[in-house]
Nucleic acid binder design. Structure first.
Lengths: 316, 316
DNA sequence: CCAACCCATAGATAATAACCTATAAGATAC
DNA sequence: GTATCTTATAGGTTATTATCTATGGGTTGG
C-alpha cells in the first residue's frame, strides 16, 4: 500500500461513500458526478490493494478492510481537526510562545507588563532572555527571539521599533555626599568623583560615556560593577557616584539621593523592537497589542510614551 | 486549511525535514533534490497558512505550529501503520470474516470442519446461515455469503463448486417394521408406505421425488415434517418410513434401522460453492484451503471426496 | 578570503489526479 | 414493461503535482 499519492480528498470521498452507502448520493453531497466517485473509490482500492466496498444489488456493502479503513480515516481526520483547533488558538494568541530578549535594565519594568499578560493568556509561553546590550544585540542579529527590548535600538534596516516608556538616567550619590546638598551641580563638578559603572557594552554606560566624550570629559576614577543593584547598594554605602536608570531605583530607598545635574540630560526611551525579515509569532503580535492597550495601567503613567500603535499597524 | 490537496507524500517530506532539521539532508534521504523539498515545504505552509519551519543561519527551526503538525502526522502515520498490520492479518487469514450459508442437512457435518478451523484462527468470524435449499439458493443468487454448501449445486454460470463429501441418502424404518427384516427390498415395495418427508424445497425431498417421478411412482401417504431430527425421531417411534442423509443419523441409535433398497441409489455429494463474480474474502479462501488439507482428519474418511484442490487452484 | 555548504527562487516538464460527458448494463418500482 | 434508479466503463480535458536544472545569495570553517 503506497500512501504517497493518496490525498485527503480521496479519503473524504471514501468516507462519504461509507456513510451514505451510495455512490450516487456521495456524488450529490460532494458536488461531483457519479462516475467520478466510482473512479475515486476504484483508485483507492487499487492503492490499498484490497476491496473496500462491494456492490450487490444497487446496494453497497462495506468490506472488513473497508470498514477498518473508514475507522482509520475517522481517527486521522480527528487528529487534523484537533490540529485545526490548535492553530486557531495559536492564531488567537491563546497559545503559543513569545520569546523576549531584553537588556538588563529592562527587567525592572517589563515584568509589570508580562505579569498581567501572562495571567490573561496562561497557555502562552514567555521565555525571557536577559543580557547586556551587546548580548541582546547579538541575539537580535541572529533573530533568535520574537521581541527585543532596547533603550537605544539598533540599526533598523531589518527591524521596526516602537517606543513605549521613557528611560531617564539619573545620577545617584550617597545621602551624605557633599554634592547632595549643593543646589547647582554641573557635569564638571562630578567628573572627578569616583564613578561606579556597569561593564562596557551596557547601554547605560555607553550613553553616559558618549555624553562625556562629546563634552570633552574623561572620568578619572571608575569601578566596574556587575549589576544595577550592586551599583545602587554600593552608592548607598558611600563608595562613589552612579548613573542608573530611574526605573532601577526602589521608590522609598533613602540610602542614596539623586543629583540634579543641571547641564546633563541623559534621557532615552525603551523600545520594543521586532525584526521585519522574520515571521513574528501570533503570541508576539498579541503581546504587542496587549502592551499598546495596557501600558498606562501596568506602568507608571508619568513615564509612558505609547507609540506602539504605529508599530502594531505596520506589523499587520 | 484545505487538506484536500495535500498528499501523504507531502507530509512524509515534512516529517523528514522536522527529523533531520535540514532541507538538503531530507533531499538526500528521500532521493529528491533540495529545491524540490524547499518547494514542498513552502506549499505545505501555504495550505496550512502558517509558517512551519523557519530558517535562521542555515539552521532550521521548527515553529510551534510546525511541531504540532509533526506530532499530528506521527499519529496519523501510526494509524495507517496499524491499518497495514490489520490488512496483513486479514490477508493472512488470521482475521476477518467468512460467511457460510448451508442447507439444513449440512449442519450435521460442517461443524466438524468449522470447529478445528475456528480454534486455529480465533479472530476469524464465522457467521453461519442455515436454511433449506430454496432459502440458501436465494442467498446465493444475491451473493450474500462467501461460501455456500449445497448437495446439488445450482447453475454454475457465476459460480464454482468443489465436492468434498458423499451424501448418501438412506431409507430408515422403525426397528420392528416388517420390511426391516426382509432381505430384498425394492422401491416398489415401499412406495405405498407412509413417508415422513421434509417440506418441498428441501434437497433431500427433491432428490427422492425426482427419482420417484422418473421411475413412475407416486407416494400415496406422506407427512411433512420440519426437520431431519423430527423425521428420525418419528420414524423411531413407528410413524412411518423416512429418507434422510446418512450423516443425520447418530451412530448408535437403535430405535430405527436402515433399509437396503436394492434398486435405488440416492447418492449425491456435498459441494462448497463460491461465486466467481464476487470478491471472496481472504478468510473464506483460507477456510477452503484449510478444508482441502483437513477433510480427512475432521470427517469420516469413508465418505470424503476431496475435490477441493481444483476449486482452490481456480480461485487464485 | 575561498571553498563548501545551506536554502530560496525561477522556469520547465512529464505524470497524474481530478474531474467531466456519454453510455451501458443491471435492479427496482409501479 | 417502461421509467427510473443504481453502478461501471470509456474517453477526454484541465489543473495540479512532483519533479528537475540552473542560479543566486547567505553562512561557516579553515
Amino acid at each position: 500500500m503506497d500512501l504517497r499519492h493518496i490525498s485527503f480528498r480521496l479519503l473524504e470521498v471514501f468516507m462519504c461513500v461509507v456513510k451514505t452507502r451510495s455512490i450516487s448520493e456521495t456524488a450529490r453531497q460532494l458536488h461531483l458526478t457519479q462516475p467520478t466517485v466510482s473512479q475515486q473509490i476504484k483508485r483507492l482500492q487499487e492503492t490499498v490493494n484490497e476491496p473496500l466496498v462491494m456492490v450487490n444489488q444497487q446496494r453497497i456493502h462495506i468490506t472488513e478492510a473497508g470498514f477498518a479503513l473508514f475507522q482509520t480515516c475517522q481517527q486521522v481526520f480527528g487528529h487534523f481537526d484537533d490540529y485545526q483547533d490548535y492553530l486557531a488558538e495559536l492564531r488567537g494568541g491563546e497559545r503559543g510562545r513569545c520569546k523576549i530578549a531584553m537588556v538588563n535594565t529592562a527587567q525592572y519594568i517589563l515584568p509589570k507588563l508580562l505579569g498581567p499578560y501572562s495571567n490573561l493568556h496562561p497557555h502562552v509561553e514567555l521565555p525571557l532572555e536577559i543580557g547586556n546590550r551587546a548580548e541582546v544585540l547579538a541575539r537580535f542579529e541572529r533573530g533568535e527571539d520574537d521581541i527585543y527590548v532596547f533603550s537605544h535600538p539598533p540599526s533598523l534596516e531589518h527591524a521596526k521599533a516602537g517606543r513605549f516608556l521613557q528611560n531617564p538616567l539619573v545620577f545617584i550619590a550617597p545621602i551624605n555626599h557633599l554634592l547632595a546638598s549643593k543646589s547647582h551641580v554641573t557635569l564638571h563638578d562630578i567628573v572627578s568623583e569616583r564613578f561606579l559603572l556597569r561593564e562596557p557594552g551596557s547601554a547605560t554606560r555607553m550613553l553616559f560615556e558618549s555624553e562625556l566624550q562629546s563634552r570633552g570629559f574623561v572620568l578619572s576614577n571608575t569601578v566596574q560593577m556587575a549589576s544595577n543593584e550592586a551599583i545602587r547598594v554600593a552608592v548607598g554605602s558611600g563608595m562613589g557616584l552612579g548613573v542608573v536608570s530611574r526605573h532601577v531605583l526602589p521608590p522609598h530607598d533613602t540610602s542614596f539621593c539623586m543629583l540634579d545635574v543641571e547641564d546633563v540630560n541623559l534621557a532615552s526611551h525603551w523600545y520594543f523592537v521586532v525584526r521585519t525579515d522574520r515571521h513574528l509569532s501570533h503570541a508576539a503580535r498579541n503581546f504587542l497589542k496587549f502592551a499598546q492597550l495596557n501600558l498606562e495601567q501596568c506602568l507608571d503613567k508619568q513615564w509612558v510614551t505609547n507609540e506602539l500603535s504605529q508599530l502594531n499597524k505596520s506589523l499587520n
